[in-house]
Design a protein around this nucleic acid. Structure first.
Lengths: 246, 246
DNA sequence: GTCATCGTACTGGTCTGACCAAGATCAGAC
DNA sequence: GTCTGATCTTGGTCAGACCAGTACGATGAC
């Protein structure tokens, strides 16, 4: 019971969690390391196994640790999917947050495109070109078109070679694809949108190729603004039809 | 056992987690709602209580749910601190991620300042002015100065009135303050940095007051660039002394 | 001696049933 | 009608057990 000192004060779950957190933050537990077994951990800290499992599960959802069935628990390189989970939940409960998330997306992408201008390599260019072509090919398809649009934008972020930006961006993936799709449904309504979609993405691509951060940022920002404008117009149209309900 | 259908296929923890996630994402479980008791949940899903607790604990660390001792489990408004935890762990194990996070921070703030130019109200302006003044007052203090710097930047994000941006920004708070402090330690080394700090923040403030998004963005971006430059110079200085080790 | 096979110890995954402490609730005393 | 206390319920935790595979060493065949 003296050994408990390692994480005293708290009790049960907190004790185990604090114990592991300490080791993880301090560096004595590094990615790749295998933790001692649940049973050992339990006796070591003077708690029961279910409690240990709670703590391990908590670290698992945080992407810090991975529990491998019948193998053991190993420390992993912090995983992105955590943020994904969080945003999924957070946004599900605050639908009004969608516009807000869109702002965050713009923020991420505009920064990403600046970095992409500096850091993009041949592979990135090829990927961008490929996804850009896809946009043209699928311009008349709702789902595939939306997907292509999303892929192009994702390629931009990937080309930034910034893991954090990529993580944040993909965290919003669910919403983004949704947003893209709903926007795509407007393509039919606004024929002019086709040229907008193709030409605008082309311009964005060109700016990256030219490695011109300012122009790329400005072009991308304008791209989003025009998209908003289309959406706004569509909404206004809808409101006109159902204005009585307001 | 037919009711299990709701979350079939998975087993144990996954089953419970999926079950709850479904309800949460679908909206049948909203913030403020109280979940049924652990025991009921266990029998409902045909699993044992420890498993249910694992799932609840998982949701707890994700900030989705709050377990109140002897009261019950209630759904909460997603909390930012989760991201904080994640970043804390992530950065502890990947120090190289710091630069990357800095990029994300620039992304967030530059977008935030644009929004701030549109949305900032009197209270925001007052807050900005207050924190700006604080920067001047604490220019010679390392800790207080760093704090003031951070507060000013935070005020910008707050003035954007974007919850998502605020969340993202504050989730990096730990690192940001750290980054600010280490930068502050350079103040002594570069006397010219004092004027940079004061004047630059002043210019940023002016741009917001003028409600000029482009100028604000550009100024802020330049501000970060100059900060980087200072840091780079400091690092180069260090490297000069230890260049042999490279 | 080398290699393949076979056990066994160990790991995570889960369940059962139990006990505790303390809020919540309602019946009964005043 | 109000107050008090017994009881129910809830989360918090524990102990011990079983299963199903994995890892690894011992054993046996070659």
């Amino acid at each position: 019971m003296e050994l408990k000192r390692a994480a005293e004060g708290e009790k049960g779950f907190e004790k185990v969690f604090a114990f592991l957190r300490e080791r993880l933050l301090e560096g004595s537990l590094k990615p790749g390391d295998r933790l001692i077994s649940e049973r050992e951990l339990a006796t070591l800290l003077g708690v029961s196994r279910p409690i240990v499992r709670e703590a391990l599960r908590a670290l698992t959802v945080l992407g810090i640790v991975e529990i491998r069935d019948r193998i053991g628990t190993v420390v992993t390189r912090p995983d992105v999917s955590v943020l994904n989970d969080f945003f999924t939940f957070a946004l599900a409960q605050q639908a009004d947050m969608l516009d807000d998330v869109m702002q965050a997306r713009v923020a991420i992408e505009c920064q990403a495109i600046r970095l992409a201008c500096e850091r993009a390599n041949i592979a990135d260019f090829e990927r961008l070109q490929r996804t850009l072509a896809k946009i043209g090919e699928t311009i008349d398809e709702a789902d595939a078109g939306g997907m292509a649009d999303f892929e192009f934008h994702r390629s931009i972020v990937v080309a930034s070679h910034s893991e954090t930006l990529t993580v944040l961006h993909s965290s919003m993936a669910g919403l983004l694809t949704h947003s893209h799709r709903s926007r795509r449904e407007l393509v039919q309504a606004f024929p002019s949108m086709k040229t907008y979609l193709i030409d605008d993405h082309r311009r964005i691509f060109d700016a990256i190729i030219a490695r011109d951060p300012e122009r790329a940022d400005a072009t991308l920002r304008k791209h989003f603004a025009i998209g908003d404008e289309y959406r706004r117009r569509a909404v206004v149209g809808d409101i006109d039809k159902t204005s009585a309900s307001r």
